[in-house]
Amino acid sequence: MHATETLVRRYYDAFNRADWPGMLALLTEDVVHDINQGGRETGRAAFASFLGWMGRAYREQLTGMVVMVDATGTRAAAEFTVTGTYLIADAGMPPAHGQGYVLPAGAFLEIRDGRIARVTTCYDVNDWKRQVERGVPGAP
């Protein structure tokens, strides 16, 4: 297994454990975070704040992880399924009352000096909204 694949898997394993310090330790200090269909934030402190909110508003697990790495080890992509529960309403989003959802998602990552320097996460926010507005049979 390539060192970059190991790094990416460690990052997402930490996510699944809600180990925010473990995730942050794998990022560069100036990490760039492209929030799905949102803005761009820079820096580990901004990422920590994002994780803090996410940990309160959503409970998620990522499964079916597939990691792809380019030949240089400086770029990676991950594809996975997000299974989650919506706990606290996010600004501009539907009300939260413990609705479940299941989404296909992916991320693009840039690696520098053995750490993650960019995370760009992608999923269909309209699909997510439909699921939390209607409820999804079999979702948590």
Rank of each mutant, 00 (worst) to 15 (best):
H33S: 05
L109T: 01
P94E: 09
V82C: 08
M1R: 08
T42K: 09
R40S: 07
T4D: 04
A76W: 07
M68D: 14
A105Y: 07
Y58N: 15
A89S: 13
G43C: 03
Y11F: 14
A105C: 08
V31T: 03
L109H: 00
D124G: 02
V69I: 09
D127G: 04
I35D: 05
T42C: 02
D90N: 12
G73K: 06
R44W: 07
Y58W: 15
W128Q: 01
I116S: 04
L103P: 08
F47P: 03
A89E: 15
V69L: 10
W128M: 07
M65V: 15
E79N: 09
A57D: 12
A78F: 04
T85P: 06
A76K: 09
P21K: 03
R130E: 13
V136C: 06
P94W: 05
W128E: 03
Q37F: 04
P21L: 07
Y58T: 12
A105P: 06
A78G: 12
F50C: 07
E79G: 10
A48E: 12
G55Y: 11
Q131F: 01
R59M: 11
T63D: 15
F47T: 11
Y101D: 11
F108G: 08
M54S: 14
G43F: 00
R56A: 14
M68A: 14
G100M: 08
R9T: 11
T83R: 15
R134H: 14
L87H: 10
Y12P: 04
E41W: 03
V136H: 03
A3D: 13
K129W: 05
L7P: 02
R59G: 10
L109G: 00
Y11I: 03
C122K: 06
T120P: 00
R59E: 15
V102M: 07
P94S: 06
V32P: 02
L7K: 02
Y58H: 14
K129V: 13
R40P: 03
G84Y: 05
E79I: 10
A105F: 05
G100P: 10
G135F: 12
A3F: 05
T42S: 02
D34Y: 02
E60R: 12
E29M: 01
H97W: 10
E41M: 05
G22M: 04
V132E: 08
W128C: 00
P137M: 06
Y11N: 08
A18C: 03
G55L: 13
R40H: 07
Y86R: 13
E133S: 04
A18P: 00
V66P: 09
E110L: 06
D19W: 01
V119A: 07
C122A: 12
T42A: 05
P94N: 04
V67D: 09
S49M: 05
Y123C: 00
D90Y: 08
L87A: 06
H97R: 14
G106Q: 04
G22A: 02
R75F: 11
R17G: 00
A45Y: 01
T42F: 05
G43T: 00
Y101H: 11
F80S: 10
F50Y: 15
M1D: 07
I116D: 06
L27G: 01
W53G: 11
T6R: 12
K129Y: 09
D34F: 03
V102C: 09
R75Y: 11
R17H: 03
N16R: 02
V125N: 13
V119E: 12
V125L: 11
D30L: 07
K129C: 07
T74K: 11
E79S: 14
H33E: 05
A25N: 09
D13K: 00
M23Y: 01
G39N: 06
F108P: 00
G39R: 03
